[in-house]
Each structure stands twice: as structure tokens, then as C-alpha cells.
Design a protein around this nucleic acid. Structure first.
Lengths: 159, 159
DNA sequence: TATTGTTATACTCTATAACTATA
DNA sequence: TATAGTTATAGAGTATAACAATA
């Protein structure tokens, strides 16, 4: 192999650089809306199939439940989400979106996509689509405390 | 668009997840060698064209010069790199590899590639190659203190 | 005994500010 | 005046440990 053996040939290095750049730019773009990238992810999850317990959201977003506390706190502070008692399990909170959330979510999507557009400016439409598909398919199975989680934890979608 | 609107459709989310997983696994794999992923990157840079000043390495690896101090400290502590005075600029250190470094670098490459193999297990050879090419081409130009850096800062290769 | 949410704490990785010695 | 390296410090983001309430 003759490819230059600099860090730029390491997958971890490349992923870290891009992840940092995109997340930093997204955080800056979303700041006027009072949310962070990770908060946007939670809004998306709840919009797709809420209300959900904090733990269930954590499974999907792949963050620890202690981190979810802070994320939901932020959303609640901004009036975008609310915690209800779960009548079926009094330990759990059901997190739901407020009426304000829909508009903010729509704006946030636009801002976030704009950041992605800029970051992918050098790619063709096909390459960009391929990148997203590959990254999605490459995602390892969700784990919790080291053991693979089979069930997505009572998705609780109201269908 | 009908694609599920969960965080998994956001480029920043996907990149962060993969970056975290690969870097965590790589760090664990390299631990027996006494180096970290970022240290491996520096070894590669020096191996490809050292000795270099810490600043020059930082440009290539895209880390701040204050961070480079810690990275070179680690490598020096492990006996893999050494700081020499730069005869042409007495402010600068020329960082070079020690004799031990070559063997460690070879082992580290094997371990790192093994981690990448595992992480890319679900991809075809073509997809994996495409992923790497796309990530390399998508890398934004190096910036330092907000302004784009045109020169790679006196590479100082001894040719 | 195990689990949800919570808090306090610690850890990783990184960058900013201020300093020194040079240039 | 600017730059290389250094130090101390702070910030973002994450996780671990321990607790109360509940299952």
C-alpha cells in the first residue's frame, strides 16, 4: 500500500475530525433556538414516537440515563418538552413535546441540514447519499452496560 | 421524504457515534503498547516525514499546540519520541522518533486496523473503500485560530 | 433483586490565557 | 511585534457510584 501513512488514513481520526466539525457547527447554528444537537435528537425521537420514558429515549439516542436527565432538563427549561408521571410505572417519567416544540423542531431541522450541506459541499449527491447509508448500516447494535440490548425498550408509540 | 426522522438520519449524530466507538476501541487496543490513538497519529506523521516541530505536527494532526505538548510528553515518557533543539530556531523543538518507535508503530498499525476491520465488518470492501475516500475528500482545510492555513508550516523534511 | 430517575463526582479531550525565551 | 513551547485553567461531553422510590 502506497497511500500516505499519515493520520488521515485512519478511520477513527477521520470520523473524529468530521464529528467534531459538524457537531460544533450545528451547536452554533442551533444556539438561537436554545437547543443543542443532542436536544434536537431527543425532539426528533419524541416527534416520531412519543411520549417515551427517559430511559427509552436514551436507548435510541445511545446516551446514558444520567446524561438524559440533563438533556430533558434543558428541553424542559426551554419549554419544548414536559415530564408526565407514567400511570403504568410510577418510577418513570413520560417525556412529551409541548406545542412550542413543533415549530422549533422545524426550524432546527432547517438549520441542521444547512450545516450538513456546507460540510458536504465537496461531495456529489450520490456520494453524500452513500455516506449516510453506509454510516447508518455500520451502526453497531445498541448496548447498555456492556450487554447488547435486543428490545428497543417498550417503544410506547401511540398508534 | 419518508426516511425515519430519528437522530440516526443526522450526519453529526452518526459521525459522533462512530467516532466515539472507533476511538474508544482503538484506545483500548493500543493500551498494551502504552500509546493512545492521538499518539499513533503523531508517530505516523513523524515516520512519514520527521523530525518536525510540535507546531508543524499540530497543523497536520489538527490539534492545538497546547495539546501537542501533552501528546509528545506521553510519547517521550514511553521512549518513542525525543525532543531535540532546532539549530535554526532556538524556540522550537524538533521531535524525532527513537529506535524503539518503529516496532511499536508496526504493532500499533496492526491493532488499529483490526479495530477498523471489526467496526466495518458489515460493509463490503467497496463500501469501506468509498467511505474512507469520501471522508478524506470531505476534510475541511486546516484552520488555525480561525484563519485558513495555506502553508503546511515549513515541513522541515530532511531529504 | 432489579429498574427509573436523580445527584454528585470524575474522567477525557480539547481549547483559552498568560508566561518565557526566542525571532 | 509575533511565534514555539509551556503551564494552569476551564469548558464540553461523557460516564460511574450511590441514593430514593418503585417494580
Amino acid at each position: 500500500m502506497r497511500t500516505s501513512h499519515v493520520p488521515h488514513s485512519y478511520l477513527g481520526f477521520l470520523l473524529s475530525q468530521h464529528a467534531g466539525a459538524v457537531q460544533r457547527a450545528t451547536a452554533e447554528a442551533l444556539m438561537p433556538l436554545g437547543i443543542q444537537p443532542r436536544g434536537l435528537g431527543v425532539l426528533e425521537v419524541l416527534s416520531a414516537g412519543g411520549p417515551l420514558s427517559q430511559r427509552a429515549i436514551g436507548y435510541i439516542c445511545r446516551v446514558d440515563r444520567t446524561t438524559m436527565v440533563a438533556i430533558v432538563d434543558e428541553l424542559e427549561l426551554e419549554g419544548l418538552a414536559a415530564r408526565d408521571m407514567d400511570p403504568d410505572d410510577r418510577r418513570a417519567h413520560l417525556v412529551r413535546l409541548t406545542r412550542r416544540a413543533a415549530g422549533v423542531l422545524r426550524q432546527a431541522r432547517t438549520l441542521a441540514r444547512r450545516v450538513e450541506d456546507r460540510h458536504c459541499a465537496r461531495l456529489s449527491a450520490g456520494e453524500r447519499k452513500a455516506l449516510l447509508a453506509i454510516l447508518q448500516r455500520m451502526l453497531p447494535p445498541v448496548t447498555d452496560c456492556g450487554s447488547p440490548v435486543s428490545a428497543m425498550a417498550h417503544p410506547a408509540r401511540r398508534d
